[in-house]
Structures are given as C-alpha cells and as structure tokens.
C-alpha cells in the first residue's frame, strides 16, 4: 500500500517536471536562453500548476461524490454545477464583461458554480438532511435545464465571442497565467482538507446511513459538509479551465482498483493522480501537432478510457 501511494506521488511530480521541460520544444534547464526562460517561467509553469490543481479538484471531488451519493456513476459534472458554471461563463463572455479584467470569466464561472451548488443542495435538502437520490436527480434536472439554456444562447447569438465560449466549455488551459494560481490553490486546498479530515465519516457513509449512525456519525451533517467541499472543488476546477470530462468519473475508479476503497487513501490518491493525468494530457495536447493546440479533455479521455477498460476486464470488481 505504501509503495503504491509512493508510486502515485512520484508520477505526480514526474508529470509536473516533464510538462515543464518537454513540450512543443524541449527546454534544457541547464542551458536557458532568454526566450526559453520566459517560456518556462511565465507560460509553462503556471499552466502546469493550473492543470495539476484542476485535475486534483476533479479527481478528489469525484471520489467524494461517489461516496456520499453511493453511486459509481456520480461525477462532479452530474450535479449540474459545471453546467451552471458554463452557462454563467458563456453569459459573461458574450456580454463582453471585463469588469475584473482577466479573471472576469473565471469569476463568472465560480459564481455560477456556487449558485448552482446551493440550488442543488436546497433541492436535495429535506427534513434537515441531504438525501442522495434527491440530490442526484435535482442535479441531473438542473444540468439539463442549464445545458438547454446554454444551447439556446448559442443558437440565437451570431457573435464571434462564441468561439471563445465553446473552447472554454470544452476545457482550455492555454490562457493560464499566475493570476489564476492563488485562488485556485486556496480553493483546492480548502476543498481537499474537508474530505481528508472527514475520511472516516465518508467511509461510514459508503457502508450505509444506519451503519454510519451506529459509528457515531450524523449522516445528514457529514453529507452536507462533504457536499460543500465538492461544490468548492468543482467550482474551482471549472473556473480554472472549463470542463474536462473523464477525470472526475473514472480516475477514482482506477484508484479503487489500485489502493482499495478506504477513503483515507482513496481521496488524496485520486487527487494526485487526477492532477498528474490532466497535466500529462495537457502536455500531449499542446505537443502533438505544434504549433496547434488540441483541447486537453480529448486527450484525457483517449489516454484514460482504454486503461480503465483494461482494468475493468482484468480485475472485474467494481465496488465503492
């Protein structure tokens, strides 16, 4: 177990290092000219950090959500949070808002995510506790509504800003700079701290509310607390770089194959490997057809999905 965790940590730092020095062109850290230095420090470094943070948020929130909803198909996008964020971001882009400069669109996305999370939470709230089924269904319903509204806006608008909105919705890390790092860091660290501290409660919730109750946890309150952390993590990831699929849904499952279902290990390991995967996928997406860039989300799924299917055949266990 310790070896496996160590392995994930090594992969995490390895993909970060690789993404700094490898890319459309190789940078030799011992022989830096002016341009390489600038590319390394103000283009690659912030972009890799944003990719890591975003991947960590997605991996961890997926693991937590699958636990609190007791549903292997749950992922941070199923709750409608990302659709709400995308809708708000697209509105911001199309309205040409720039009140807060470069962080305007991320700010819109964040506000949209938090607002949606609150609405979904209220819909799932009944008799003082959060109900998993209600939460999930409310999320799916809102998700459809917001996606439809987004399509509506895009259909009736002939604006060139659409190109940006679409790229953004499909996940785009190309404009990442250091301004996004501090708030991303705060949100992801805060969002990760809750499930790590409450990992035992999460374990108990997976086994059932009665069981959790008998262990001295209040299922309703624990679920609410963990749901809030998922909301912050998802909001952080969507506002950092749009929507990137696969990581939130399948990275936790891949990690379950590897380290088992104990959330004390599963959540941090899902975060680390989610970050590593996104960082690596982003590296591929910008290096494969230079000087053109592909959306990172395409690469995450193309790398990740076959590996997941391979594991599924070999291990043939899939439990939370």
């Amino acid at each position: 177990m310790k070896l496996k965790i160590f392995f994930v940590i090594v992969i995490f730092f390895f993909s970060f290092g690789l993404s700094l020095f490898w890319g459309p062109s190789v940078i030799n850290p011992f022989n830096l000219d002016e341009t390489s230095r600038e590319i390394l420090l103000s283009i690659r470094a912030p972009r890799s950090v944003v990719a890591l943070l975003m991947g960590m948020a997605l991996g961890a929130s997926g693991a937590v959500l699958q636990g609190i909803l007791r549903n292997p198909l749950a992922d941070p996008y199923v709750l409608g949070i990302s659709s709400g964020a995308s809708l708000a971001a697209a509105l911001g882009i199309l309205a040409g808002a720039s009140v807060f400069g470069a962080v305007t669109v991320p700010l819109f996305a964040f506000a949209g995510a938090i607002a949606t999370g609150a609405v979904v939470g209220m819909m799932g709230w009944n008799r003082g506790v959060i109900w998993p089924e209600r939460l999930l269904l409310a999320g799916v319903g809102l998700s459809f509504l917001f996606s439809a509204l987004l399509m509506l806006i895009m259909s009736i608008s002939a604006d060139e800003g659409l190109r940006r909105a679409i790229l953004w919705i499909f996940g785009d890390l190309s404009m990442s700079d250091w301004t996004r790092v501090p708030y991303g860091l705060v949100l992801v660290a805060g969002g990760l701290a809750i499930p790590i501290v409450r990992a035992r409660a999460l374990n108990a919730l997976v086994l059932g509310d009665e069981f959790a109750h008998s262990l001295g946890f209040s299922p309703g309150k624990e679920r609410l607390l963990l749901f809030v952390s998922v909301g912050f993590l998802t909001a952080a990831s969507v506002s950092l770089g749009g929507m990137i699929g696969f990581i939130g849904l399948l990275v936790p499952h891949i990690m379950r194959f590897m380290v088992g279902s104990d959330n004390r290990y599963l959540v941090p390991v899902s975060a680390l490997s989610g970050g590593a995967l996104l960082c690596f996928a982003d590296l591929i997406s910008k290096s494969i057809l230079p000087p053109m860039e592909l959306p990172a989300g395409i690469v995450t799924a193309i790398i990740g999905a076959p590996y997941f299917l391979f594991l599924l055949r070999r291990k043939n266990v899939l439990s939370l």
Partner: peptide, 30 residues
C-alpha cells in the same frame, strides 16, 4: 505552416517564433 486554417495557437511557440509584426483583427468591440 499550421495544419488548419484557423489554428488555436500555442503561446510558447509564438514566443519562439518571435514575429516582427503582430496584426490583430479588430472585428468586434472589446
């Protein structure tokens, strides 16, 4: 030399290619 008509362009490649002149199509407010 990109592969498509309107490529989404890598900023770091642009830094390396160091163009003498940059022209920005000003087709929309903002």
């Amino acid at each position: 030399k990109a592969r498509v008509s309107y490529p989404k362009y890598s900023i770091e490649e642009l830094l390396r290619q160091a163009p003498d002149i940059i022209v920005i199509g000003d087709m929309r407010e903002g």
